[in-house]
Computed example of a mutant assay.
Amino acid sequence: MFTATHRVQFHETDMAGIVHFSNFYRYMEEAEHAYLRSLGLSVSMTRPDGSVIGWPRVRAQCTFEAPAYFEDVIEIRLKLMRKGVKSLTFEVEFYRDERRLARGSLKTACCIVAHGQPLVSIPIPEDIDVKFVEEPAESA
């Protein structure tokens, strides 16, 4: 499991001082980027031939359980649940202290963009694939 933290900024809240739901998707992305950096990767990687490998989202969802407020420090727990041939699926949980605030998932596809060409999904290159380790499924 990879863990990141985020302190809620004033501009992320609504008139009641509660974090607007859309920010949880940004927090997922923040944690995903930090996770990739921890592996020596990036969400956008230029290859020697000038093409760029990236990870666009193909699905994202989030279920909310409790509000987060201005100045809260949120712990974002990200787990790689599935490594497919061309995709990664993450489970994400958000906590303030021991209180779970929300849980979600994020699925990204490995894609390449060559100069002047459209975005194309590709199998995860071996030099990148070996860096990812799936979390074992929890038993009931």
Score class of each variant (00 low, 15 high):
112 I>H: 04
107 K>Q: 14
90 F>P: 00
124 I>Q: 12
63 T>N: 13
86 K>I: 02
44 S>A: 15
41 L>Y: 11
48 P>N: 12
88 L>A: 02
23 N>S: 03
78 L>N: 03
98 E>D: 15
130 V>H: 12
95 Y>W: 10
113 V>C: 13
21 F>H: 14
127 D>I: 14
105 S>A: 02
10 F>H: 05
15 M>P: 04
125 P>W: 15
132 F>T: 09
101 L>T: 00
43 V>P: 01
128 I>M: 10
137 A>V: 05
59 R>C: 05
28 M>E: 03
78 L>Q: 02
11 H>E: 11
35 Y>A: 05
98 E>V: 01
24 F>Y: 15
37 R>V: 06
40 G>F: 04
93 E>Q: 03
102 A>F: 01
67 P>I: 06
103 R>F: 04
30 E>A: 06
138 E>G: 12
129 D>P: 00
47 R>C: 15
55 W>Y: 10
43 V>T: 11
44 S>T: 12
3 T>R: 07
61 Q>K: 11
38 S>G: 11
59 R>G: 06
4 A>G: 10
15 M>A: 13
136 P>V: 11
98 E>C: 02
93 E>C: 11
57 R>P: 12
32 E>M: 02
4 A>Q: 02
92 V>E: 00
70 F>Y: 13
102 A>E: 05
55 W>F: 15
98 E>H: 01
74 I>Y: 01
113 V>L: 08
16 A>R: 07
100 R>S: 08
100 R>Q: 13
25 Y>I: 04
101 L>V: 01
55 W>V: 01
111 C>W: 05
9 Q>D: 06
70 F>I: 10
101 L>F: 00
63 T>M: 13
136 P>Y: 02
57 R>K: 03
34 A>F: 13
81 M>A: 09
69 Y>V: 14
4 A>S: 15
57 R>L: 00
112 I>P: 08
119 L>M: 13
136 P>F: 02
75 E>A: 12
75 E>H: 05
87 S>P: 07
57 R>A: 09
18 I>Q: 01
73 V>K: 03
41 L>H: 05
75 E>K: 07
11 H>S: 13
65 E>R: 08
87 S>K: 12
27 Y>I: 00
138 E>D: 12
8 V>A: 03
45 M>R: 09
109 A>I: 11
67 P>C: 05
39 L>I: 00
64 F>N: 04
28 M>W: 00
84 G>T: 00
132 F>P: 05
50 G>D: 11
72 D>I: 04
66 A>G: 01
